[in-house]
Design a protein around this nucleic acid. Structure first.
Lengths: 210, 210
DNA sequence: TTGGATAATGAACAGCGTATATATATATTA
DNA sequence: TAATATATATATACGCTGTTCATTATCCAA
């Protein structure tokens, strides 16, 4: 008779192999998405890259949107970590500005992740399935918390914290999404976008916050 | 012998018919785009709607992206008209806020036009073909002009006018694009978005501008 | 070694954007 | 009016897409 521990070992190896295959697919997918964008990448492209048949992918993911949804979650985890890294800053005004910078850094360093997190039209059925649970919620909550602490320090007096949070988020999202979707090329070159516009805007915001 | 005027008359009718057919296609296209979005609409869908064969469309437009490009231009004309309508306001501070409201109104009333003007990833070849000429340029120039007049009235002292213009544009674009691409559903319901967030943000901005 | 589970695949379906060769309708000329 | 020339519309086809499913190959337990 085979020992229980051996059965468990095999099961564990199988689980591990499944997880590795999933990661394999996700890695291939995101690298292709970065190269050509979600819409231009086909399941066949992904299957070519990992040297399996297209049908194989469908035994690891429900459909193409499911792959997107997984990458979506990975992106939100990375963003949240970046946000946490500036939470140590004492002065709430400087902290919220650093918070915005962290957001911009994430977006500019991972434009394709940013796309699928905040810009891309998401497949409708996926949104409904996961209704009520949004992985971006805790990032937003952190922002609101920082706004409240700014108010306790005397800034944004008499404003609703959600209005301020939304306005802050909109501003950084606006900058970065106009850049990513190439709507400001006639105003400033790609090279100078960060050093010029973003830095100057941070300075400008620092003056505005009161 | 046939009179010249008759030849011209026939030519004019033909030109008119071609123009009508183009408009017919564009109308069918935008109404389908509004219903289902650009990517989900096929040339075959459009040809079904106008009751012609798919191939016919290709004698009026180069390709699917060309249809998009035409609608793109129509959208920018309408936005510019909306912008001009608030240029009469005397106080430059109130004018620039009304300018922002006009932009938001356009976006919320014509979300599908806004999508293809400012959010959608545009086909690369089209962008290159029309390099250097962007129909949004004059809208941006108008914004910069208003910023300069604000500065002459004592606001935005010591700031670069392009930095201020970009920050202004980013803010309104950020609000509206987060809304259109459904990223703030967990913060506020669709119904209350305009009356709550946008109005409050305008009030907030009015306090911030100095 | 054999039976059963699991994983991978080849083939197929309907739909896509698009090119081209053919057919049809219209306009001009003899 | 009849024949020719031109502009327009279409049928057909190609290679692509996401996805499904029946079939095959692989692995493990008895």
């Amino acid at each position: 008779m085979v020992k229980l521990v051996e059965i468990m070992g095999i099961q564990e190896r199988k689980d591990r192999e499944r997880a590795e295959m999933r990661k394999n697919i996700l890695d291939a997918a995101i690298s292709l998405f970065i190269e050509s964008g979600y819409d231009s990448v086909s399941i066949r492209n992904i299957s070519d890259k990992i040297e399996y048949s297209p049908a194989t992918i469908y035994s690891y993911f429900e459909d193409k949107a499911d792959i997107l949804f997984e990458l979506h979650n990975i992106g939100f985890s990375e963003l949240y970590e970046k946000q946490l890294r500036v939470q140590g800053i004492e002065d709430p005004k400087e902290r919220i500005i650093a918070h915005g910078r962290a957001y911009l850094d994430f977006a500019l360093q991972n434009p394709q992740y940013y796309e699928l997190m905040f810009i891309m039209r998401l497949p409708k059925d996926k949104l409904c399935e996961n209704e009520g649970w949004d992985p971006g919620q805790r990032s937003y909550d952190l922002l609101v918390q920082n706004v409240i602490e700014c108010q306790q320090a005397g800034y944004f007096k008499g404003q609703d914290e959600h209005d301020v949070a939304f306005l802050t988020w909109s501003t950084v999202h606006g900058m970065v999404s106009l850049f990513i979707r190439e709507r400001i090329q006639f105003v400033v070159t790609n090279d100078r976008f960060v050093e010029n516009f973003v830095n100057n805007s941070a300075k400008l915001l620092r003056g505005i916050i009161q």
